[in-house]
Measured scan of single mutants.
Amino acid sequence: IRCIGVSNRDFVEGMSGGTWVDVVLEHGGCVTVMAQDKPTVDIELVTTTVSNMAEVRSYCYEASISDMASDSRCPTQGEAYLDKQSDTQYVCKRTLVDRGWGNGCGLFGKGSLVTCAKFTCSKKMTGKSIQPENLEYRIMLSVHGSQHSGMIVNDTGYETDENRAKVEVTPNSPRAEATLGGFGSLGLDCEPRTGLDFSDLYYLTMNNKHWLVHKEWFHDIPLPWHAGADTGTPHWNNKEALVEFKDAHAKRQTVVVLGSQEGAVHTALAGALEAEMDGAKGKLFSGHLKCRLKMDKLRLKGVSYSLCTAAFTFTKVPAETLHGTVTVEVQYAGTDGPCKIPVQMAVDMQTLTPVGRLITANPVITESTENSKMMLELDPPFGDSYIVIGVGDKKITHHWHRSGSTIGKAFEATVRGAKRMAVLGDTAWDFGSVGGVFNSLGKGIHQIFGAAFKSLFGGMSWFSQILIGTLLVWLGLNTKNGSISLTCLALGGVMIFLSTAVSA
């Protein structure tokens, strides 16, 4: 259960009878995928790494000078000259100064003066180019299975845990398959586009800190620079940016070097996208990844198990997540596992009318040892309800109150669905055939309105939902006002479609 501690969480529900669903994975976010007769899966884009970055340009932001020398000439005696002028490691300046009897010249006039100092770069920052084909995306998957609280967001041991898996995709191999043991396998067909235009970005490294910066900004930095990788004795261009020549006297000129420019660069980098280094690879934390999940090989585990009949206890007080759902960790005293956990939410304890829904599909106890633990997640209705676990006299209950409203949740879900469709863009549509167009249209309606429909009408039977949709269509056909007619027709059509397409 990876997503319960992530604030940016998206719930995606598969269409009834569908074998695939489109998701948008982004750094700092987590996606929970639910479908009829399929286990619930949490998917998170953990890291995006980039390798084989080529150094484009380096800037010196802290330097020192040494070996200063000057040469001067009297008027009419030609130009002052130093051998160091031809050495690229030196920074030199030529000027004219007033000369006369007082400073060793027989004539009054302008004399030539040249001053040089050896330039040494102490600290530099480097910009590297990123090729999209060198990106690698690491995705962690977790099935809502027989897990306890100690396994949440624990990325170790996934090789031997059938509840978890790690997959890596690249532009050259965008397809992967996550093996989930008894739950089958989940196929991923990803489109490795981060949403960032790397043709316009460089990877900047300064003092063990890293950013993504725009090329134009990078090339306009007014500091000494050299092109390409460091060859040991780089040729620094624009050395004068960190060196200041003071007022010249008759035979000498003082040279000083400016202080470190790291603070000024940090100020200019305010708002830039931060990154990290992992050995020789860069780690990015921006952008998104679009994936199509193929769920035809994914299956529920323990459908044929019998119900657990022994007593359950709450190991922890049920807690609310950031998303309005409830996490419950229970301990089973029996030894008759594997068995299914009898769990439901009810409005009252007399009729036990089921409300809400299970995020953890078909929760089971897989071990036959005593005191096995299991964590599950529920989506309670707004208002008061009861969490009921167990059967008969051994069942345990917990009162729950959820604040908020169904309308607010439906609106929030619609906005999130619209954002998801905007990110998917043209990849969500198939114009290759008439059937493809209608299929894409259905998927689009489901992406945007599916979660809201589930919130508003999830407790009704599909037949009642179709009746309401048919009534809206009838009202649309018999209303003389054009805008009201079109609105009723659209709402009725969407409702009829979703009542037959969205899983219960």
Results as ranks from 00 to 15, higher is better:
Arg2Pro: 02
Arg2Gly: 14
Cys3Ile: 05
Gly5Lys: 04
Gly5Ile: 02
Val6Arg: 00
Val6His: 01
Val6Thr: 00
Asn8Phe: 05
Arg9Asn: 06
Asp10Thr: 01
Phe11Asp: 07
Met15Tyr: 04
Ser16Pro: 02
Ser16Asp: 03
Gly17Ser: 05
Gly18Arg: 01
Thr19Ile: 14
Val21Tyr: 02
Val21Gln: 01
Val21Ser: 00
Val21Glu: 02
Asp22Gly: 08
Val23Trp: 07
His27Val: 15
His27Tyr: 08
His27Ala: 14
Gly28Asp: 05
Gly29Asp: 01
Val31Gln: 04
Val31Met: 08
Thr32Asp: 04
Val33Cys: 07
Asp37Glu: 12
Pro39Lys: 10
Pro39Ser: 13
Ile43His: 09
Leu45Pro: 02
Thr47Leu: 13
Thr47Gly: 15
Asn52Leu: 00
Glu55Pro: 02
Arg57Met: 11
Cys60Leu: 02
Ala63His: 08
Arg73Thr: 08
Thr76Val: 06
Leu82Pro: 01
Gln85Ser: 11
Ser86Asn: 03
Ser86Cys: 01
Thr88Lys: 11
Thr88Asn: 15
Gln89Gly: 04
Lys93Glu: 13
Val97Ile: 14
Asp98Leu: 03
Arg99Ser: 09
Gly100Gln: 08
Gly100Lys: 06
Trp101Met: 10
Cys105Trp: 13
Leu107Gln: 04
Gly109Trp: 10
Ser112Glu: 14
Ser112Gly: 11
Leu113Thr: 02
Val114Ala: 13
Cys116Lys: 06
Cys116Thr: 06
Phe119Gly: 05
Thr120Cys: 08
Cys121Val: 04
Ser122Ile: 04
Lys123Thr: 03
Lys124Ala: 13
Gly127Thr: 01
Ser129Tyr: 01
Ser129Val: 15
Glu133Ala: 05
Asn134Pro: 02
Leu135Thr: 01
Glu136His: 00
Leu141Cys: 11
Leu141Glu: 10
Ser142Cys: 03
His144Ser: 04
Ser146Lys: 03
Gln147Tyr: 15
Ser149Lys: 00
Gly150Lys: 06
Asp155Met: 09
Thr160Leu: 05
Ala165Thr: 03
Lys166His: 01
Val167Leu: 13
Glu168Asp: 15
Pro171Trp: 10
Glu177Phe: 08
Ala178Met: 10
Thr179Trp: 08
Thr179Asp: 14
Gly184Cys: 08
Ser185Asp: 07
Ser185Gln: 14
Ser185Glu: 05
Gly187Met: 14
Leu188Gln: 03
Arg193Trp: 10
Gly195Thr: 09
Leu196Phe: 15
Ser199Ile: 08
Asp200Ala: 13
Tyr203Phe: 11
Leu204Gly: 05
Thr205Val: 14
Met206Cys: 04
Asn208Ser: 15
Lys215Ala: 10
Asp220Ile: 07
Ile221Gly: 01
Pro224Thr: 05
His226Pro: 00
Ala229Val: 13
Ala229Arg: 09
Trp236Tyr: 06
Asn237Glu: 08
Asn237Met: 13
Asn238Ser: 11
Leu242Gly: 01
Asp247Val: 05
Lys251Cys: 04
Val255Leu: 14
Val257Phe: 08
Gly259Pro: 13
Gln261Leu: 06
Glu262Cys: 10
Gly263Tyr: 09
Ala264Val: 13
Val265Ser: 10
Ala268Phe: 13
Ala268Trp: 12
Gly271Val: 01
Gly271Leu: 09
Ala272Phe: 11
Leu273Val: 15
Glu274Tyr: 07
Ala275Glu: 00
Ala275Gly: 15
Met277Gln: 03
Gly279Ala: 14
Phe285Pro: 08
Ser286Val: 00
Ser286Lys: 07
Ser286Ala: 12
His288Asp: 10
His288Pro: 00
His288Gln: 09
Leu289Thr: 02
Leu289Gly: 01
Cys291Ile: 04
Met295His: 10
Lys297Gly: 03
Lys301Val: 08
Lys301Asn: 03
Gly302Thr: 01
Val303Glu: 02
Val303Asp: 00
Tyr305Lys: 03
Phe312Val: 12
Phe314Tyr: 07
Val317Asp: 15
Val317His: 01
Val317Tyr: 02
Ala319Met: 08
Val326Ala: 15
Val328Asp: 03
Glu329Met: 12
Glu329Pro: 07
Gln331Thr: 09
Tyr332Asp: 10
Ala333Met: 07
Gly334Glu: 12
Pro338Ile: 07
Lys340Met: 11
Lys340Ser: 01
Pro342His: 07
Val343Asn: 02
Val347Lys: 03
Val347His: 04
Asp348His: 07
Thr353Lys: 02
Gly356Glu: 06
Leu358Asn: 11
Ile359Gly: 03
Thr360Glu: 05
Asn362Val: 02
Ile365Arg: 00
Ile365Val: 15
Ser368Glu: 00
Glu370Arg: 02
Asn371Arg: 07
Lys373Pro: 07
Glu377His: 05
Leu378Ala: 03
Leu378Arg: 02
Asp379His: 05
Pro380Ile: 13
Pro381Lys: 04
Pro381Trp: 06
Asp384Trp: 12
Tyr386Ala: 06
Ile387Trp: 07
Val388Gln: 12
Val388Ala: 07
Ile389Tyr: 11
Asp393Ile: 03
Asp393Tyr: 14
Lys394His: 12
Ile396Gln: 06
Ile396Cys: 12
His398Arg: 13
His399Trp: 15
Gly404His: 11
Ser405Trp: 03
Glu412Phe: 11
Val415Ala: 06
Arg416Trp: 10
Met421Arg: 03
Leu424Tyr: 05
Asp426Met: 12
Asp426Gly: 06
Ala428Lys: 09
Trp429Cys: 09
Asp430Arg: 02
Ser433Met: 07
Val434His: 12
Val437Thr: 01
Phe438Lys: 11
Asn439Phe: 11
Gly442Asn: 11
Lys443Leu: 13
Lys443Asp: 10
Ile445Arg: 00
Ile445Gln: 10
Ile445Val: 14
His446Phe: 12
His446Ile: 05
Phe449Lys: 10
Phe449Cys: 13
Gly450Asn: 10
Ala451Ile: 08
Ala451Tyr: 11
Ala452Ile: 10
Lys454Leu: 04
Ser455His: 12
Gly458Cys: 11
Gly458Tyr: 10
Gly459Val: 02
Gly469Glu: 06
Thr470Asp: 07
Val473Lys: 01
Val473Thr: 07
Leu475Val: 11
Gly476Asp: 10
Lys480Phe: 02
Asn481Trp: 12
Gly482Asp: 13
Ser483Trp: 06
Ile484His: 09
Leu489Gly: 02
Leu491Cys: 09
Phe497His: 13
Thr500His: 13
